[in-house]
């Protein structure tokens, strides 16, 4: 469970421009509502297969998106719709993606959260857990060779931390001192498998020692703590290039996907994290600091909801790709 803030954290949070907190809150609400819209479409049978959301984990992606610079590169995973949105993907793009529309980011060639736009610095994931960490490392190496002071951020789950790819990439990045922040979103479960069956070390972040790099932990449900932590690391590795491991403690608030009733998660655990919902926590803090009030928040919600429902309507009105395009674009033209 999250600990008390240190005086240092309190001071860092206090030093952040208040406009940042409004951006952070807005992006969390946007991501939550996009995910909720995806769930509705899924329930209506509009989406092929299941749907995967990041509900309850928004603060982690949002902190990274808001802290990122234009040249930075990102390797999001299945809980990071907020990262996509924070890097310029639109609700319409997401709706087209989940509905497999030709004008979506993968044009129906891939589904659900398997998308990303390189022009936004975002790599489209592949399902193979852990495989994207080395890709973002290579991308950052290239950017740096091209004279950009880019850093990278890769997101993985507690489950993905068990893969060989995770280990290979951490060691590789450490040897080459590549400025990548690897964030383990420890949401306690990998599908149905709890942490107790996933790893035997005390904390996943302890593995940093074995790679010869720094490891930090943060409360993944506290947007302010996440932001100052991530911002601090990204600023630091930008000028002093090296990988850093960050374990963000959080909770997956739904099933692995919408097909999963997640009965294996104890009710008490969900209740606990329900009280610690990242949006609720941020809103409470911002109200206390007079950065937000009920009417401004309602207006923000209404504006976001209108955009999302318009996006869903638009995407639903479009048709899936023509089967005649099946074999196009497998290769880039020589």
């Amino acid at each position: 469970m999250p600990g008390m803030w240190t005086l240092e954290t309190v001071q860092k949070v206090a030093a952040v421009d208040s406009a940042v907190w409004v951006d952070v809150l807005r992006l969390m609400v946007l991501a939550r509502k996009v995910d909720e819209q995806v769930i509705r479409l899924c329930r209506q049978g509009q989406i092929r297969g299941s749907s995967f959301t990041g509900i309850g984990q928004e603060a982690i992606s949002v902190a990274v998106a808001v802290a990122g610079e234009p040249d930075d590169l990102f390797a999001p995973c299945i809980r990071n719709v907020a990262l996509h949105l924070g890097r310029g993907e639109t609700p319409l793009g997401i709706m087209r993606q989940v509905l497999a529309r030709p004008d979506g980011p993968t044009g129906g060639r891939d589904g659900n959260i398997h998308h990303g736009r390189l022009e936004n610095g975002v790599y489209a994931m592949i399902s193979h857990l852990g495989a994207m960490i080395s890709v973002v490392a290579g991308g950052v190496m290239a950017k740096r060779r091209h004279g950009k002071d880019a850093v990278g951020v890769a997101f993985v789950g507690d489950g993905a931390s068990s893969t060989g790819d995770f280990h290979e990439a951490m060691n590789f990045a450490a040897v080459f001192k590549v400025p990548v922040l690897v964030i383990i979103e420890n949401n306690h479960y990998a599908y149905s498998t709890p942490n107790s069956r996933q790893f035997a070390c005390r904390h996943l972040v302890d593995r940093a020692v074995g790679y010869g790099i720094e490891g930090l932990s943060a409360d993944g449900n506290n947007a302010a703590e996440m932001y100052v932590t991530v911002r601090g690391i990204m600023d630091d590795i930008r000028t002093n290039p090296r990988p850093v491991l960050l374990e963000a403690e959080t909770m997956r608030m739904r099933g692995h996907g919408e097909h999963d009733d997640f009965k294996y998660v104890p009710e008490e655990l969900l209740l606990l994290y329900h009280r610690r919902d990242p949006i609720k926590l941020a809103l409470r803090a911002m109200k206390a600091a007079k950065l937000m009030d009920d009417s401004a928040f309602s207006a923000m919600e209404a504006e976001i909801e209108a955009e999302i429902s318009q996006a869903a309507k638009q995407a639903l009105s479009e048709t899936e790709p023509s089967p005649d395009t099946l074999t196009q674009g497998v290769y880039a033209d020589a």
Binding site: M132, S134, G138, E168, A169, F172
Partner: peptide, 20 residues
């Protein structure tokens, strides 16, 4: 590089998508 065929190829993919 270290002995890490997957990370080597992943790194190459990352580089290639950035113009290398």
């Amino acid at each position: 590089t270290p002995i890490c065929e997957s990370a080597m190829l992943g790194c190459a993919i990352g580089m290639a998508t950035q113009g290398m």
